[in-house]
Amino acid sequence: MAREPAGTAAGGDIRRYLLPDVLARLRGLDLVARLVVEGFVTGLHRSPYHGFSVEFAEYREYTPGDEIKHIDWKVFGRTDRYYVKVYEEETNLQAFLVLDKSASMRLQSPEAPASKLQYATWIAASLAYLMLAQRDSVGLVTFDTEVRDFVPPSQHPSHLKVMLGHLDQMEPGHESDLGAVMHALAEQVRRKGLFIVISDLLDDPEKILFGLRHLRYRRHEVILFQVLDPAERTFPLRDMTKLVALEGEAEEIVDPIAIRKSYLEELERFLDAIRNGCRNTRTDYVLLDTSMPLGIALARYLATRSEVKLR
């Protein structure tokens, strides 16, 4: 597979690196991450996010729990409001990329450009690249039934290499238990941060939402990227098919045409539950499938990031 020269992709439009089927031809997560982000940023000039500044505020409004010694009394004198003077390392966001590496993420249907795990990895890498470029602090959590890797957040540019190294060497795990993982993270990470969860969410929605509420209770911001295979969303199969579970021993011989409608109804019911749960917890929820450009994920992150800054 030929590697495209960085920044000078054939055709001259670097934005095409946002397309998964193009990314699938590239080797090296760092390259993928850089091309995605550069392609995305190039596109911003014509996007609704045009004018978005990467400069961040140095003060933030006081919230209970902040140390009083950090209140900037000069600002209070001018504005009659309490603002906390944020230290350099604290002005940037602390974010965790929470990546589902359970067995179900291995799914790649014949028409899909990449597996769900690969797509999730691309998102994670790209977001890490972007965040570090913004001097945000970013860490990495991978999980299946529990947290498997935990890379503490850092804003040092060299941290990208560490992050990508973990992502590159990541092996799919077993069944997933996102709910439990979110509980664990809520307990483990005390400092308010942004959790970017990238998962297929194929688990009990009640448990997921329960974990989500726990995170939110800890005042963490959460962006939930649900990554599905296009086949999972449309169930396009036609011939009799024996579907073998990626997690567990289950298998089912099905006449896809006969059950498509019911399957899609079940899927929609599940997605509705997730959507509603996210709405109730004021969680950003983004449904992606592996054929969608990665720019959607980046844009959604930036939108959330800006809100996080404003809060």
Binding site: S104, M105, R106, L107, S109, K116, D200, L202, L228, D229, E232, L237, D239, M240, T241, K242, L243, V244, A245, L246, E247, G248, A250, E252, I253, V254, I259, Y263, E266, L267, F270
Partner: peptide
């Protein structure tokens, strides 16, 4: 039938 791995087995 063809054999295919599948993730969303619960809906199925």
């Amino acid at each position: 039938y063809r054999v295919m791995p599948w993730a969303a087995m619960e809906f199925l």
